[in-house]
Design a protein around this nucleic acid. Structure first.
Length: 855
RNA sequence: GCCCAGGUGGUGUAAUUGGUAAACACGGCGGCUUGAGGAGCCGUGCCCAUUUGGGCGUGCGGGUUCGAGUCCCGCCCUGGGCACCA
């Protein structure tokens, strides 16, 4: 009997998890009315980034974010919202496959096993996920719709195939997206990435660059993520213009001069047509300082520009450049190399000819792949010009008029000099005027460019969504008809390990590859590449609204009810890729008329990382706090509460075994307080004693004021993601209640305490709620409200300062006037001491706070 | 190099619009309580002083102000992101 009076988290947690499960407490009921009797409850879609089912399971670091979302979801539910709080699995992809390879397992087997383990962990931490909505991206019922989505993009010409130099990871033996290459290395295995030419599928995300940028304006996201996305999209305003080319030392180049290869690209049938070189610059104000032009080695005009004299040198250079990976090009100590083509470009402003060079510091895919070099006002051009002895002409001077060119390029805006009619103009204005001139002459125009590139989605790996395309000799590239979806990933496969030949292992599965053309029914072959996992995760948040729909990707009405996501919680590591891709797909679906919003995640929160013993917690480093062991020791509620209490949620923190003790003691304190209250009321059969004295009456009033203040603060703190201070506020309240004579303690205090604590420590709250005599779940109860009149303190501590230094304090009514405060303050012995022989020059009075004597 | 975020006791940290620096916890030390144990309660930023008390204290240096952790200027350090994008 006595044992039941002790807080035994393990026992009550299992008990309540079972009750929740049996009563289907966490099922989203789309039909019920809310507490306020409104026909349509306000909805709240609270989403965690779905995890990939790692074999390592979850550690307490992963559980940080899940705790935050669970607190939010539970609180919103108590506030009367209809809450969607689902969970699922990002089960396709490299990590899952690599793990399976390493352990000689089929990825399906290993992921299924991992999923059940992680699911168990999530259940034992008491999360209110609605498991009836669980989704798994490797399930044919799910990837059927990923394929369907691909086909919609294909129809819209947003999915296309092209030959491309791609990032190739020789270890993972697959292509990587630009986003997956970090400092020239594979994000996963850190092998050096090389370049390879392959036919690959792309999504045309660049078409959405502008909208992806503008959409960021109205999101409640961390500034950091917003800035990262902006930088990634990399918009710049500049000028694109045309220059005549002088072939060798001779004549202005026409289509006649084009080598065959470029002729085809130029698509011109007029041999006399003048061929122009296209340049993009953000610094057209420096055009009079252009002393040479540089083309990327891939530039299509190069073959036509090379003169015989330089042929050998140029070809050698090009050969070398193509072997180098793009990353090597950019990271190789930044030592710039290049060659002269023998040809010249004509500056349209002053008719001067400048040499055309080739250098790999110019990137082929950005802008026009060709730049005007202004060494005086660009650091890169400066370095290159110095190395190859090219001319440096100053055309912009700083406001001060003092040139500092000896120290390197002057790259800031200034005032133009030696720039013809544009001299003396400030840079910004000059850019406008010069662009205007180009426009009038039909030689150029103002434009925008982006760093963003199209999304390469082909992967030469087994464990992914097959790309639903068939190649027919007669009909060419044919999309799989929607009615034949899904294109199933063959489960039986002899060897799913990647191959170095640039093909997916699926290419060896005859039964998969061989098919018939949907158009002519002749023999045809399937595409054997699979999709990047980020395609799977770019739309999963939509599927939760209607996870079992076999007819459509989702029911529009259900999407309308639940989406967009009100709160999205996950790690900062997805700041660019996942979030950008999801936003892109959302916009595509919007354009298709399938959804009515353009931004999928209204509010985003990134939880900080958890460190332990000086390093990021991970099983491979051997520094994880295992939640399963932790639950046995302290229980899930303690873990949850510590996750909330250990520091500001967005900040990285160090897990402290010592710190855990504090919240564990707190939960015990709450338990004991209620036990004490119950035994008292039971034995003496009294609910509450009438106050016996003024003092007691005052104490009761104070406590009631504290109750309202606590409700106010905890409510606000949770809304603002300040869980650490929400917990400390509850600790303060509990300390006050514990210190209060039990016969003065009204039951409403204990109820308030439990209600406020319920989202954080749900098991304990349910148990004690039941002990207080309630039959229904505490989560059926309304979140407490505060009375703002009662929050105001009637009596305050007033600070007395002399010259801004605190010297004394006095208790006074909140409404005390300046005169009264002054009078009272001057009676204090301490203050008199300080004011002796001094003249009061000034008095600063802040009502209800302080009085400051300036002497 | 550029762009963010941050720097407060022995530790994690807290501090409305500038208004008592260190709430809430952890640990150490000291004390009280308890049959013992577990636990609970009180004190504790640093320095000087037996005490009353005083001085110093929010990375560094200036400034604004009656008053600065908070605002402004200039630095230093840590963490993160981007990095030949013309």
């Amino acid at each position: 009997m006595i044992r039941e009076k002790i807080y035994q988290p393990q026992k009550i947690e299992i008990k309540w998890q079972k009750i929740w499960q049996e009563s289907k407490a966490h099922r989203v009921d789309e039909k019920t009315r809310n507490f306020f009797g409104l026909r349509n409850k306000l909805k709240f879609y609270c989403l965690d980034m779905f995890p990939y089912p790692s074999a390592e399971g979850l550690h307490v670091g992963h559980m940080r974010g899940y705790t935050y979302s669970d607190v939010m979801a539970r609180k919103k539910k108590m506030e009367g919202y209809q809450v969607l709080h689902p969970m699922g699995w990002d089960a396709f992809g490299l990590p899952a496959e690599n793990y399976a390879l390493k352990h000689n397992l089929h990825p399906k087997k290993s992921t299924d096993k991992n999923i059940s383990q992680i699911k168990k962990q999530l259940e034992s931490m008491g999360c209110m996920y609605d498991w009836e909505r669980e989704i798994n991206s490797s399930d044919p019922d799910y990837y059927k719709w990923t394929q369907w989505l691909f086909l919609q993009l294909y129809k819209e010409k947003l999915a296309y195939r092209k030959d491309a130099f791609v990032n190739w990871c020789p270890s993972c033996q697959t292509v990587l997206a630009n986003e997956q290459v970090i400092e020239g290395r594979c994000e996963r295995c850190e092998s050096k990435v090389t370049k390879r030419s392959l036919k690959q599928w792309f999504f045309k995300i660049t078409e959405y660059a502008d909208r992806l940028l503008n959409g960021l304006d109205n999101l409640d996201w961390p500034d950091k993520v917003e800035i990262m996305q902006r930088n990634w999209i990399g918009q710049s305003y500049g000028t694109e213009f045309l220059m005549n080319i002088m072939h060798g030392e001779g004549h202005i180049m026409t289509a006649n001069d084009l080598k065959e290869i470029t002729l085809a690209q130029a698509e011109t049938e007029f041999p006399e047509e003048v061929i122009k070189l296209r340049i993009y610059t953000t610094r057209i104000d420096t055009i009079f300082g252009m002393t040479y032009v540089v083309l990327a080695p891939e530039h299509p005009l190069i073959p036509s520009l090379i003169t015989r004299k330089y042929e050998k040198e140029v070809n050698e250079y090009l050969e070398k450049a193509f072997v180098k990976s793009e990353i090597e090009r950019s990271s190789e100590e930044k030592e710039k190399t290049g060659v002269f083509t023998g040809s010249y470009a004509i500056n349209p402003f002053n008719g001067q000819r400048v040499p055309i060079w080739i250098a790999d510091y110019v990137l082929p895919h950005y802008g026009t792949g060709a730049i005007m070099a202004v060494p005086a006002h660009d650091e890169r051009d400066y370095a290159f010009a110095e190395k190859y002895g090219l001319e440096i002409v100053e055309v912009v001077k700083p406001e001060s008029g003092i040139s500092s060119l000896e120290k390197g390029a002057f790259v800031e805006d200034g005032v133009l000099v030696d720039s013809g009619e544009f001299s003396k103009l400030p840079s910004a204005l000059a850019r406008e005027k010069i662009t205007q001139w180009l426009e009038e002459e039909g030689l150029g125009f103002g434009t925008k460019k982006y760093k963003l590139r199209d999304w390469l989605i082909s992967r030469q790996r087994y464990w992914g969504t097959p790309i639903p395309i068939i190649y027919c000799e007669k009909c060419g590239e044919v999309p799989v008809p929607e009615s034949s979806l899904p294109v199933r990933l063959p489960e039986k496969i002899e060897d799913f390990s990647p191959t170095p030949d640039g093909h997916s292992p699926l290419a060896k599965v005859k039964e998969f590859v061989e098919t018939n053309c949907p158009i002519c029914n002749k023999k045809a072959e399937r595409e054997t590449d699979t999709m990047d996992t980020f395609v799977d995760s770019s739309w999963y948040f939509l599927r939760y609204a209607d996870p079992k729909n076999s007819q459509y990707i989702f029911d529009k009405k259900k999407i309308k009810k639940w989406l967009p996501v009100d709160l999205y919680i996950g790690g900062i590591e997805h700041a660019i890729l996942h979030l950008l891709y999801s936003r892109f797909i959302t916009k595509v679906l919007f354009d298709l008329g399938l959804i009515e919003f353009e931004e999928p995640f209204i509010r985003l929160f990134n939880q900080g990382m958890v460190y332990y013993k000086g390093a990021k917690m991970s099983k491979s480093k051997g520094n994880v706090v295992n939640p399963d062991e932790f639950f046995v020791l302290y229980g899930a509620d303690t873990m949850r509460l510590y996750e909330l209490f250990m520091g500001p949620p967005s900040q990285d923190v160090e897990w402290s075994d010592q710190g855990v003790i504090g919240v564990y003691r707190f939960l015990n304190k709450v338990w004991k307080l209620i036990e004490k209250f119950l035994s008292k009321t039971k034995n003496q059969k009294i609910e509450i004693k009438k106050p016996q004295s003024l003092e007691e009456e005052d104490q009761i009033k104070q406590l009631e004021r504290l109750r309202h203040k606590t409700i106010k603060k905890v409510t606000k703190d949770i809304d603002d993601f300040r869980f650490n201070t929400a917990v400390s506020t509850l600790m303060e309240y509990t300390n006050q209640l514990t210190g209060c004579p039990i016969n003065l303690l009204d039951k409403k205090h204990l109820e308030t305490l439990l209600l406020l604590l319920a989202p954080m420590a749900p098991h304990l709250a349910e148990e004690l709620w039941q002990k207080l005599g309630y039959k229904e779940s505490i989560f059926q109860r309304k979140w407490p409200k505060f009375n703002s009149d009662l929050v105001i303190e009637k009596e305050v501590e007033m600070i007395i300062q002399i010259n801004g230094k605190m010297r004394d304090k006095l208790r006074a009514a909140e409404t005390i006037s300046e005169a009264e405060a002054k009078e009272l303050a001057l009676t204090r012995a301490k203050i008199q001491k300080y004011l002796k022989k001094k003249v009061i020059k000034k008095i600063i009075f802040i009502p209800g706070r302080l009085i400051n004597f300036v002497v």
